[in-house]
Simulated scan of single mutants.
Amino acid sequence: MVITASLSLADIPGAVRLWRQRRTEFLLCIAAFAGVALLGVLEGIAIAVALSVLNVFRRAWWPYNTVLGRVQGLEGYHDVRSYPQAGQLPGLVIYRFDAPLIFANAKAFRDEIRRLADADPRPSWIVIAAEPMTDVDTTAADVLEELDETLNANHVHLVFAELKDPVRRKIERYGLTRTIDPRHFFPTVEAAVAAFRLRTGAEWTPLTTAEQPARPKPDTAAPPPADER
């Protein structure tokens, strides 16, 4: 009887829309429906809430990240996964990390920066397009300090562009400007690129395979971009 009543309340068109638009939310919908149908209303709602919270943590743990490049005919800098032939400056990598930098994802950020820094040829600047980075917690600050010291030892500099003022103040309060050069904070990605070109005289070249962002392994896979989930 409970299952029959639940079926009569099911929003089939809404579920189909979720399947087409965002598979993760469709799975949450099915889990909530199954919980209500099999266990009861309160239990089903509890399952849906718990799974939704876990999904939030999943997205914070493995945020979308990518290398950016310049695309002829388009303003700004764009995802090289969407534009594989985007231009790059030799010696410079522009990297975007689409989440606050917190304890849950700081090591993933560190590992990706290390991978980019170990490319051949080695970049001298890694510019973080930091507009999506709305926070840096103390654990992430410790990771950043260690990372920057390692990069500096290899003559690679961590550079931040478009970092929000409250986050910049936190970085200063954490004392990270002892290792991250205060001159390596720029208001825009374009300003950082211009400073690098002025310093090195570099010219734009097509993206090489070695510079493309790594595809995570299945057991540690980052979720796909938001418009694909």
Rank of each mutant, 00 (worst) to 15 (best):
R229N: 15
L18D: 11
P121C: 09
P121W: 03
A34L: 15
K107W: 02
P187R: 08
R178A: 15
Y83E: 10
V41L: 15
P182F: 04
F57A: 09
V159T: 14
Q21L: 08
A106V: 02
A194K: 14
G76H: 04
W62K: 08
D79T: 14
A5M: 08
D142T: 08
C29P: 00
T205F: 00
R122I: 01
H184E: 01
P206R: 09
V56M: 11
R70M: 11
T66Q: 04
V2H: 05
W204Q: 04
R229F: 14
R23F: 14
K107V: 03
Y83D: 07
I102C: 02
R183F: 01
A214K: 12
E146K: 12
D137R: 07
Y83Q: 01
R58L: 06
P182D: 05
Q88I: 05
P13G: 14
D120A: 11
L28E: 09
A222K: 10
Q21P: 00
F185M: 12
L74F: 13
L51R: 01
C29G: 01
P132Y: 04
R20P: 04
A106H: 04
H155G: 02
R81K: 13
V136R: 03
R115L: 10
V16Q: 07
R20C: 04
E112L: 02
N65C: 11
G87K: 15
I171P: 03
V93L: 08
E211K: 06
P132F: 06
L144R: 05
V136K: 02
Y95T: 14
A202P: 08
I180V: 10
Y77M: 09
L54N: 12
P63M: 11
E131D: 11
E203R: 15
A194M: 03
L207D: 00
E43D: 13
E131T: 06
R199P: 01
L163Q: 11
T138H: 14
P223F: 14
A221N: 13
L42H: 07
D148E: 14
D135R: 07
L54E: 13
R110Q: 04
S124A: 15
E211S: 11
P218H: 08
I94P: 11
L38W: 05
W61Y: 11
A192H: 08
A130Q: 01
I126T: 10
A86M: 10
Q85N: 12
S8H: 10
R58N: 07
R96H: 03
A104I: 14
R96A: 15
I30D: 00
A119S: 09
V156N: 05
I94C: 10
F33S: 03
R70P: 04
A37L: 02
I102A: 02
E131K: 07
T134A: 11
G91L: 13
N55K: 01
A119P: 02
T200C: 12
L28V: 07
L39N: 08
V56S: 13
F97P: 03
F196L: 01
D219P: 06
F97Y: 12
L9C: 04
A194N: 07
E162G: 10
D227R: 08
A48D: 05
R114C: 05
S82T: 13
D111T: 06
Y64V: 10
W61R: 12
L38Q: 02
S8R: 13
D120P: 00
P223D: 07
A10K: 03
R58I: 00
L7N: 05
P132V: 08
R110K: 03
P206W: 13
A226K: 09
W19F: 15
E190I: 01
P224D: 10
T4R: 12
D219Y: 11
L54C: 14
V156A: 00
